[in-house]
Design a protein around this nucleic acid. Structure first.
Length: 484
RNA sequence: GGCGGCGUACCCAAGUGGCUAAGGGAGAGGUCUGCAAAACCUUUAUGCAGCGGUUCGAAUCCGCUCGCCGCCUCCA
């Protein structure tokens, strides 16, 4: 497997520290507000990586944290007039709800910063002892100049950053780039007892403490959004490696941003869409498909139109699955092979290899999706050739199995076509009931038997206007939700 | 200003040295159909922002130019 490593700036062969085992840590969210689609991308991308590594036979230990104490949470608590831990608790619950709706699995461990205060204090003390950190007036800062490799992840050096001069002014720091490991708390703020008085952890130290505790000094993959590269992950490396004297994470993996009108989606620009809002308009599978149809490191432009295209693609997939079911259910009295059977069979033989090949190459989900649709077309073409008999059924069943396997890797295409159709109904034609459609269908069937085409077409048109499309086949008329 | 990335058809998007540049959407034409829909076929990039260079050979490597974006402050 190849994996792009931000640290080296290259795709590298993936070799875990312990053969057959992968330990990965992904920075989760700070729980002070609703999650937007950008958070969903990160969650979905790393969920897929984790699933795929497991599919590849690795024993995966996946840790994703919650930052449940920080300035933003404290500010939000003040604004809303509620205790800080009620804020964090509320948004943790909301996060779980969003992830469940999105179809993102839970991590093996989901630790919280406030559950690791003793570990955080321990590391901070260790860093002071080793001369990497200093205490001033109840604050403890990491001294960036003491760590020779500082900047190795984000590819910048301390002097350049100082020239940029957008760092906060803080008289107490020896160097403006120094960052807080521990912050003295003000009156009324959440606080824990420490050797430096009442205080709370800085932002970066929690991830060092939690990854060290749950995964050890050196582990395999550390992930998060690209905006965490600096300063968060840079600082994590500095404090972790200074503390343990060992390499921290081996592969640094970062997902790209979601943009709106070419601009990064962010809270400050106000151009964000919450997961909840989007799931009120689109099915979670469409959201997942949309996000996986672009490589995880590329920026991806968000729009309703893109989601609609995702729906159309998914619909094409399920329409083919339905066709498979119909074909298998048919009576196969004669043996007849379609003329392009060989080509089809050959494609089936290479299919999983091609999908895993794409995923092995830095999780190229977009290419894997492309392979799936190649198979879809080949399958439709094969069925157009009107094959029949046990051998044809076996071949189609094989194709169905392969599609299912590929879908399970990507965590898409994993339900029944009827369920997909029903899900679409909720969004596209919520006022139409299945009973209504079926009664209209029966009415139309009578008209068709009488060859009253005008009446039949009127009913078709009526249903079409309500968002339902009819398909007349030999076995009868079926219907599906129109995507618009 | 420093660092990094991107620019592939009408739109989205894969492809990072070598068969006819995946796949999806949209458009046009066709097969099928009572008519449709779905499906399939044909069609839309002799060219991958532009200009040079390296190479037997480049969308892919190097240089320059233009355009867009990100990070350098909290941010998935």
């Amino acid at each position: 497997m190849k994996l792009y490593n931000t640290l080296s700036g290259k795709k590298e062969d993936f070799v875990p520290v312990m053969p057959g085992q992968v330990r990965m840590y992904v920075c989760g969210i700070t729980v002070y507000d609703h999650c937007h689609i950008g958070h969903a991308r990160s969650a979905i991308v790393f969920d897929i990586m984790r699933r795929y590594l497991a599919y590849r036979g690795f024993k995966v230990t996946f840790v994703k944290n919650f930052t449940d104490i920080d300035d933003k949470i404290i500010n939000r608590a003040k604004q809303e007039g509620m205790p800080w831990d009620e804020v964090s608790g509320k948004y943790i619950l909301e996060y779980y709800r969003d992830m469940e709706h999105l179809g993102v699995g839970k991590a093996d461990m989901e630790p919280r910063a406030t559950e690791h205060i003793p570990e955080i204090i321990g590391i901070t003390e260790g860093l002071i002892d080793k001369g990497y950190a200093y205490e001033i007036g109840g604050d403890v800062y990491f001294q960036v100049e003491k760590f020779a490799d500082y900047g190795k992840l984000s590819k910048r050096d301390i002097d350049d950053m100082l020239a940029g001069a957008r760092v906060e002014v803080n008289e107490r720091k020896r160097n403006p780039m120094d960052f807080a490991l521990w912050k003295a708390s003000k009156e009324g703020e959440p606080a824990w007892e420490s050797p430096w008085g009442q205080g709370r952890p800085g932002w970066h130290i929690e991830c060092s403490a939690m990854s060290l505790k749950h995964l050890g000094e050196t582990f395999d993959i550390h992930g998060g959004g690209a905006d965490l590269i600096f300063p968060h992950h840079e600082n994590e490396i500095a404090q972790s490696e200074a503390y343990s004297g060992k390499p921290f994470a081996r592969y640094w993996v970062h997902n790209g941003f979601i943009t709106v009108d070419k601009e990064k989606m962010s809270k400050s620009l106000g151009n964000f869409f919450t997961i909840k809002d989007i799931l009120g308009k689109f099915d979670a599978e469409a959201v997942r498909f949309f996000l996986l149809s672009t490589h995880y490191r590329s920026p991806i432009e968000f729009s309703d139109e893109q989601l609609r295209e995702a729906e159309t693609s998914i619909d094409r997939y399920y329409a083919t699955v339905l066709r498979i079911h119909d074909f298998i259910a048919q009576e196969h009295t004669t043996e007849k092979s379609a003329h392009d059977e060989k080509v089809f069979e050959e494609l089936l033989g290479r299919f999983i290899e091609r999908v895993t090949g794409a995923m092995d190459d830095d999780f190229n989900t977009a290419l894997a999706v492309g392979h799936i649709f190649e198979l879809i077309r080949a399958l439709n073409k094969y069925l157009d050739g009107k094959p029949s008999g046990a051998q044809a059924v076996a071949l189609v069943q094989k194709a169905a199995g392969l599609l299912k396997e590929a879908g399970s890797i990507l965590n898409i295409f994993n339900r029944m076509p009827e369920d997909w159709n029903r899900a679409l109904m909720r969004f596209k034609c919520p006022d139409v009931t299945e009973e209504f459609i079926i009664s209209k269908l029966q009415e139309r069937q009578k008209a068709r038997e009488l060859k009253d085409w005008t009446a039949a077409d009127t009913i078709r048109k009526e249903l079409d206007e309500k968002g339902v499309v009819l398909e007349d086949k030999k076995e009868g008329t079926s219907w599906k939700v129109k995507i618009f």
